[in-house]
Design a protein around this nucleic acid. Structure first.
Lengths: 172, 172
DNA sequence: GCAGGATTGTATGGTGACAAACTATTTGAG
DNA sequence: CTCAAATAGTTTGTCACCATACAATCCTGC
């Protein structure tokens, strides 16, 4: 393949302000949203894990989303939950297992469709959800602190839009 | 549990346009950047995986970043690379092992510091890098397609800013 | 009704990531 | 100089996730 493959990289304004300590050049990477989405997500998660470790045990970041979604959508099925949560249904099985074992969630067979489970949040589950909510809010404040005030809303808006449209594109 | 724990959720404009098919309510989740970062990253990765599966074999998304970083920073060490890439150094060991085995990368002991390896991209490695670059560009176009023209630059700018500042905050 | 296909959830296997423990070096305090 | 601490890389253990295959249930066409 002789061609230079210039291929017009997206942006590549070449900021070259790496995330690491010294001056690592990112090159073409610096134009890719995909790269920075992964980095940003990693940072966000690490910040949460750090706080969680410093505070109590409760390291489960994903449980908050699950408890919230069940609380907001009583009777939701595992498949619908997994889709709203962006994870595979098979990943959800052990999570629901544990939440049920801890008494946070109940599984009831749906009469009109006996393959499916109807998920409900218990009172204990709601207490757990609120605790995790506080941790999530604390983490969110941390994320906010590195953004200009207006940027936070802008970023949230674009991430929502992006998520919705990508979901449609992938499914369709 | 008497107290309501209102706790002023960040935004919660309650769009409630879930990513899934039906009308799943996201509730408090809809105000969290952390939640949407994870969703967006998942979507981006799934889109790439789908394309990769449709095209050839080359499913390795992370290899592109590694090859690019080595190419841009000849002689970089594994630890510096892992930091720039946002992954643990122990995760990098098997990756470099394979890239070396395939003849894409060379490891040389640094004379002035014999603990460290100096990483270099080979000619074959650069060819591989270019192939993966094309795939990455194709994926990036897909991500672009769901954003308004101006939004792409805005999103990239904010993700960069966010990534850099978070990295500093976590290390410091 | 009644096969054949779609769906709901589960079990299993593989992958990729981190943390912690380890070896080999380098650095620094005294 | 020497020994303790820090650093570079690897190894091991664990965990979360997905893909695949599976059992049960449902829906459809005929």
């Amino acid at each position: 393949m002789p061609s230079p493959i210039k291929a017009k990289i997206p942006t590549q304004s070449d900021d070259e302000t790496a995330s690491a300590r010294p001056d690592v050049k990112l090159g073409e990477l610096s134009g890719f949203i995909g790269f920075y989405l992964r980095m940003a997500q990693t940072m966000s998660f690490q910040a949460y894990a750090k706080d969680a470790a410093a505070a109590g045990r409760t390291i489960r970041a994903g449980h908050f989303a699950v408890l919230t979604l069940i609380g907001e959508n009583p009777g939701i099925t595992q498949t619908a939950l997994s889709r709203a949560n962006g994870r595979d249904k098979s990943s959800l099985t052990p999570v629901i297992d544990e939440l049920e074992r801890r008494g946070f969630v109940t599984r009831h067979r749906v009469e009109s469709n006996r393959r499916a489970y109807s998920l409900q949040l218990t009172a204990d589950g709601d207490v757990a959800r609120r605790k995790l909510l506080l941790a999530a809010i604390a983490n969110e404040r941390r994320l906010e602190s590195v953004l200009d005030p207006g940027d936070r809303e802008e970023l949230l808006r674009m991430l929502k839009l992006f998520t919705e449209k990508m979901a449609k594109q992938i499914e369709g």
